[in-house]
Amino acid sequence: MEQDLSKTNNVLIKFENVGKVYKTGQITYEALNNVSLEINEGELVVLLGPSGAGKSTLLNLLGGLDSATSGRIIFAGEDITSFDDKRLGQFRAKDVGIIFQFYNLVPTLTALENVDLIRELGVEIMDPLKALEMVGLGDRKDNFPSQMSGGQQQRVSIARAIVKMPRLLLCDEPTGALDTNTSREVLKLLQDQSRVHGRTVVMVTHNNLFADIADKVIMVKNGTVFDIQKNENPKDADELNW
């Protein structure tokens, strides 16, 4: 088992009565309602819930991809709901790594260039090739996304997220487009980020099984958090079977 650097019990993220309402023409839709929660530094958190429950909205607010309609979101002691667009961008650039369900790589850049792209944000990064090697793709650095499998693309996406050594990794259905074996590999990589590198990893999924590898499971339904469970003995990703 890898060395566990997580669970420092320092609160990294705090949601205080956060709400989010979408308006389209005459129609308003309440995606989140009065959500309060805490996530500690180094934890691997799984956001579980059915489709339309509000998981992705929660993740977007957490990563500064969207702004809350009400309430406060505190990250490392700073209220990110008070940030303007520029400051939010800096927050995402420095502190947040994002992994998407469909990888969202730039199709006209190679694997290495996709990772190296982060250098252009002006933040401190590790060697992009090393990041690729960490996800096992050192030998595919010159391949374009269209020349790689879904699993490989997702690993490039992880390399792109971790190259800047962020405090928070956000993963939106990271295995949603992958087969079982590839999914397990990706989950292992994410778990390592938490356990080995001490990063906070928040993962949105609708797959209940993934709850087993999490330190904390936040259950979302109809825009509210209806349960938060702590997992004292999370499984290794390798042990998952589905």
């Binding site: 520029k86 961008g89 650039a93 994002i98 969202n104 790589l105 199709p107 982060i118 252009e120 944000l121």
Partner: peptide, 16 residues
């Protein structure tokens, strides 16, 4: 659209 969204999501500023 997705690439633009991704660039913005990973921290590129609107002006960049």
């Amino acid at each position: 659209r997705t690439t633009i969204g991704t660039l913005k999501a990973i921290g590129f500023s609107q002006s960049a």
